[in-house]
């Protein structure tokens, strides 16, 4: 028996929180994406001859979307649960007839919705800068969706784990950004020395970017099935961690 009303309540509350700051939520990611296009796509990209027939400006679009979507998912989901912890309003979640499943669907669902929309907005923005055609649109939406879910789940975990605002900022800045950059957002890994290529295979985000890029151009560095499979595995692992956290009350219950 699932308390659907509770899911709706949490989801609506979280979405309302976004709409209170809708301008900031949209402008800064869109602006920074435009800057990336100008700097990488136009200025530097002229001298980059990387990938088969794909112009460099178009090549970086999937990576740029993932860069923003990953950061935004993590930030949104982590703050979504961290704020109630900080304000002490988690007492209400804990004393309500709901399980961790409703809580996750509510919070992670809202964070996913936000970053999914943002991803689409960035894609639309990129149409103004580069000539790009999406080869497998449905696959593209699926990959985008799975990315939003996985990073939102990760953000949710970070939000529960964090004791203060520094820690909340720490993980996205120090872990996710480097992983996204080094996962081949702006290059194909075959330009790297063998050693670094091998390291890259341990970067989960590499598989995500590869799969996402495949949906755009019909070619990726690894099979798209590996990408989907590893993303799903990641989502399952996050869910297990969250389930454990709620079961033991880790940093949620006293």
């Amino acid at each position: 028996m699932i308390n659907f009303e509770a899911i709706k309540a949490i989801y609506k509350f979280e979405m309302a929180r976004t709409f209170r700051t809708i301008i900031q939520s949209l402008i800064s990611p869109v602006l920074s994406t435009i800057l990336y296009f100008i700097v990488f796509g136009t200025a530097i990209g002229k001298n980059m001859q990387l990938v088969s027939e794909i112009p460099y400006g178009a090549f970086i679009v999937p990576g740029l979307i993932l860069l923003t979507v990953s950061m935004q998912s993590v930030t949104n989901a982590s703050f979504g649960i961290f704020f109630p912890k900080f304000l002490g309003t988690t007492y209400e979640l804990l004393s309500a007839p709901i399980s961790y499943i409703e809580i996750i669907i509510g919070y992670v669902g809202a964070a996913t919705t936000k970053s999914f929309c943002l991803g689409l907005i960035i894609l639309i923005t990129s149409f103004f800068f580069v000539d790009i055609k999406v080869v497998y649109p449905m696959l593209m939406l699926l990959m985008l969706f799975l990315s939003c879910v996985s990073f939102s789940l990760l953000g949710f975990i970070i939000g529960i784990w964090s004791d203060n605002f520094e820690q909340i900022n720490f993980v996205p800045m120090l872990i996710i950004t480097p992983l996204v950059f080094l996962g081949g957002s702006f290059y194909t890994i075959d330009i790297l020395p063998i050693f670094w290529q091998n390291i890259t295979f341990f970067n989960p985000i590499f598989y995500l970017i590869s799969g996402f890029r495949f949906s755009f151009f019909g070619e990726g560095e690894v099979s798209v099935w590996i990408s989907i499979f590893s993303t799903v595995i990641f989502i399952v692992i996050c869910n297990i961690i969250i389930w454990k956290m709620f079961k033991t009350g880790y940093k949620i219950k006293t």
Binding site: N3, E5, A6, A9, P84, L93, P97, I98
Partner: peptide, 25 residues
Amino acid sequence: PQELSLEPFEKVWASVKFSRQLFGK
């Protein structure tokens, strides 16, 4: 609860409605 733990920017009506919905009513 003992502490005045509330979402500061929420309106009273929305906050009360939220609680009811959270309990599945």
